[in-house]
Design a protein around this nucleic acid. Structure first.
Lengths: 143, 143
DNA sequence: GCCTTTCGTAACCAGTATAGTTACAGACAA
DNA sequence: TTGTCTGTAACTATACTGGTTACGAAAGGC
């Protein structure tokens, strides 16, 4: 199981998309996510590094979305906040004197990578704008 | 990040496939995986419930594969040992008085499920026989 | 320049999960 | 009946997460 950082990050970005250009403080965001402002700032660190949001200290400051909600996919969000692999290899190396132990990590490493790519591709088909449309149906005109 | 149970379970099943009908004890398996026999038995519990292996107590006992290695996919193995969802929703419910907080869990729940299904489909395309072929290339005749 | 607001981050705590280990009861075969 | 296995409970060390407090630094209003 992953941490909930990915879910929290998506929630935040959707909230920022809803508010448009108005900067939101960590405290306001924390009230919607129902957690602590520090937890929000911790999550935002990854999003800022990925250039998905910008932050502004001082009075009247807060967080703003960088790009268009249509241009941010959930895959981008996932990559920004979730650094570890989802599927884990064993903590200790297997016994190299066994033919299976010698090869299993390489084999599984490839398969795991492909499986994670398949998941990422599915996430890439959903954008923050899609998530926002679920929250505020009238927020977007049908194409 | 998941536990390493999935990787360990795949290792074990490949080992059982390599040995054919000869039953392997937890101790022998533990030596190949490089861990403790109890860790092995713990992992096997899920595989036994899923009818992927059978166990036999007593002298000359141990573990044997139930079906053909070609018939066991990594998706089967994953489902047998990994019970939790991979992608997690936040521990505390969001604020229902916010339009995003009200809907985000439902929206993300669907997306997460679809993403996990995409991963499972990829895992279903690999069998224990495939993994074994990586370990012992001559173990299988080319089709 | 000073004061308020806000981010940025370190530090710490509680809860939880995992892997590893010991211990022992129960099942089975020779 | 004895030795060999599985099955499982219990305990430990370790690590990660989320929550919290605290405080420094940046920015803007007065």
């Amino acid at each position: 199981m992953t941490s909930s950082r990915f879910a929290v990050a998506t929630h935040i970005l959707t909230l920022l998309a809803l508010k448009g250009d108005e900067p939101l403080t960590s405290e306001v965001i924390a009230a919607s996510v129902n957690t602590n402002p520090v937890v929000i700032r911790r999550t935002m660190a990854g999003l800022r590094e990925a250039h998905l949001v910008v932050s502004q200290p001082g009075a009247g400051g807060g967080w703003r979305l960088v790009g268009a909600p249509e241009a941010i996919t959930l895959c981008d969000v996932f990559r920004a906040v979730e650094t570890d692999d989802l599927l884990a290899l064993p903590p200790k190396l297997p016994n190299a004197s066994c033919p299976v132990g010698r090869t299993i990590c390489g084999t599984l490493g490839e398969v795991f990578h492909e499986a994670e790519m398949a998941m990422a591709e599915r996430l890439a088909r959903v954008t923050i704008a899609d998530v926002l449309r679920d929250a505020v149906p009238q927020s977007s005109s049908p194409r």
